[in-house]
């Protein structure tokens, strides 16, 4: 399989990149690691006139940490996320997702921005980021805007990013107090797999062993985009974590997901696994929250 012909640009600055995108719009595709894009181009699913390589732009590769926020540049690699001690400490479920993605070779090339921008409902990075209530920064020549990741995905392969925009940064506000999150992905084999189902759950407690004051459950592979289990989240809030409560929440989450049958697994199995993984990720989240 050969790549179709295309022009290649490699801007050195953000400004340069933005003006190229402004000129080309839909005819250009951004490329960072290329782990998804190039495979699709070889399959002739995509053949953009131009590729704009942005991985040489230093400001897109930054990791900025303060007491209140973590800002991750869109070209920050998945392996760098997997190895970051701060990410592991503050937002561990993201690190778990990063370690679940592809293989070491793919992780060395793949970027957080690419994993969000390609908008695959089975992707490993989005669920935990949504669970942490992360935001995406989108820039264009005419300015910048910030979009909640929960509202960012529009369908398989489609996002809020406009043709002249670049996803430059992910912002995670570090939650106050006692919080934790869990991420589990389920596939056929232990690595380099397309998930059958994945779930990230976030909870925060008002005090150690206290009641849940916020919760987010994000389900992957069971809809055109990642889905929130809103009803399940609602029954958690105001209650103390318990086996019974989490089982109940898991059961509700199962009823909230909308999987389809495909060659990877049946919808029935995916639903059942949403229930199992919701329960298990809630257990991880609460365990982590209680240790904070």
């Amino acid at each position: 399989m050969l790549l179709p012909k295309f022009n290649f640009y490699e801007p050195k600055t953000q400004g340069e990149a933005l003006s190229i995108m402004n000129e080309y719009g839909l005819k250009a595709k951004l490329i960072a690691g290329g782990t998804d894009l190039l495979a699709n181009m070889k399959r002739k699913l995509l053949s953009p006139d131009a590729l704009v390589g942005i991985s040489e732009i230093e400001e897109f590769k930054n990791l900025e940490i303060s007491d209140k926020t973590i800002k991750i540049g869109s070209c920050f690699t998945v392996s760098a996320i997997a190895e970051s001690a701060v990410i592991e400490k503050k937002i561990s479920a993201l690190a778990v997702g990063a370690r679940a993605l592809g293989t070491p070779l793919i992780r060395n090339l793949a970027t957080i921005g690419g994993n969000l921008g390609s908008a695959r409902p089975a992707a490993d990075i989005p669920p935990s980021l949504i669970a942490y209530n992360a935001k995406a920064v989108l820039k264009s020549v005419s300015g910048e805007r910030t979009v909640l990741l929960d509202k960012f995905f529009k369908g398989p392969g489609f996002t809020e990013i406009q043709p002249n925009e670049i996803l430059t940064e992910i912002i995670i506000d570090i939650p106050d107090g006692y919080y934790g999150a869990g991420y589990i992905n389920l596939g056929i084999r232990k690595a380099q797999d397309c998930n059958i189902v994945n779930v990230a759950s976030f909870v925060s407690l008002d005090e150690p062993n206290g009641v849940i004051n916020s919760a987010r459950i994000v389900m992957g592979c069971v809809g055109p985009t990642h889905l929130r289990a809103n009803a399940a989240e609602n029954i958690l809030i105001g209650n103390k974590p318990s086996e019974k409560l989490f089982q109940e929440a898991a059961k509700i989450a199962e009823s909230e997901c909308k999987p389809i049958d495909d060659f990877r697994a049946s919808a029935v199995y995916k639903k059942a696994m949403i229930r199992v993984l919701t329960k298990r990720t809630l257990d991880i989240a609460v365990k982590e929250a209680s240790l904070k």
Binding site: T103, I188, R189, K190, A191, Q192, D193, C194
Partner: peptide, 11 residues
């Protein structure tokens, strides 16, 4: 070899 799944080192 993404969708035809042979064992990885982790398996």
């Amino acid at each position: 070899l993404a969708e035809y799944k042979i064992p990885t080192a982790l398996d």
